[in-house]
């Protein structure tokens, strides 16, 4: 089964405000304080008013998200017409989706790649050998711990060993994650200096990084689950 995010919105770059008729961008007509139909052309970066590049200002991202939520959330249109309520639900859902995509570096660069190359980033691909090796080593420990948890109860000292091991792996996963995000920052610095075709090599680097991050994030949630499970 293939996955596709349905785009519920009509196309058109600028949209007309439903009540005053003037062409607008964004969610909200500040002149007459009404919601706007969503433009299909607007990407998540534009929506949240941050620069379209590999690294975003997360504090600003969050501030904008909260501020925009204040204006588009369905709670604000509770006594409006059903059409406006439906629109608020759409805007708000889209805004939530945009924020959850941009705040996570892995999702953010995947999304950026899909925007820049006009197609979805391939879902599964290999990471670097080094990451793969770490992934395999960590997965082995994880499945051992998993078996230990399923057996329920057991050697106290073994339990403590496992806990120590899990925390060590978690730390290492986080360190590696940090390393990857540093690399994304390096790419980001170059990003501003080139444009068009010249960004292709950068996109390729980002693609590899996104694979690495996918593995690490999977591992991280697996380790988290086991740390909770073994407690």
């Amino acid at each position: 089964m293939e996955r596709e995010i349905l785009d519920p919105e009509e196309k058109g770059k600028k949209v007309k405000c439903l009540s005053c008729g003037s062409p607008r961008e964004g969610f909200f007509c500040y002149d007459c304080h009404t919601l706007l139909p969503i433009s299909g052309e607007m990407d998540y970066f534009a929506m949240l008013e941050v620069e379209k590049r590999p690294v975003v200002d997360t504090a600003r991202l969050k501030d904008n998200f909260l501020k925009m939520s204040e204006t588009v959330h369905p709670d604000r249109y509770y006594n409006s017409s059903p059409e406006v309520q439906e629109l608020a639900l759409k805007c708000s859902s889209l805004l939530n989706k945009a924020y959850s995509t941009l705040k996570d570096p892995k999702e953010r660069i995947k999304y950026l790649i899909s925007l820049e190359t006009d197609k979805e980033a391939p879902v599964s691909s290999r990471a670097s050998t080094e990451t793969m090796e770490f992934f395999i080593e960590a997965s082995d420990v994880c499945s051992e711990v998993d078996a230990f948890i399923k057996k329920k109860g057991g050697d106290e000292s073994l339990l403590r060993d496992y806990q120590k091991n899990l925390h060590r792996l978690k730390k290492e996963t986080q360190d590696r994650w940090k390393g990857m995000t540093n690399e994304i920052e390096t790419v980001d610095k170059e990003w501003a200096t080139v444009s068009g075709e010249n960004r292709k090599p950068l996109l390729r680097r980002l693609l590899v990084l996104s694979h690495e991050l996918s593995y690490l994030s999977k591992l991280h949630s697996l380790i988290d689950e086991l740390i909770v499970g073994i407690s």
Partner: peptide, 20 residues
């Protein structure tokens, strides 16, 4: 089970799936 909307997703939320 194939997850379409993961736990702790901010609501309201919409997600699509294509069937054939």
């Amino acid at each position: 089970m194939n997850v379409i909307i993961p736990r702790n997703t901010t609501v309201p939320t919409k997600a699509g799936e294509l069937f054939t």
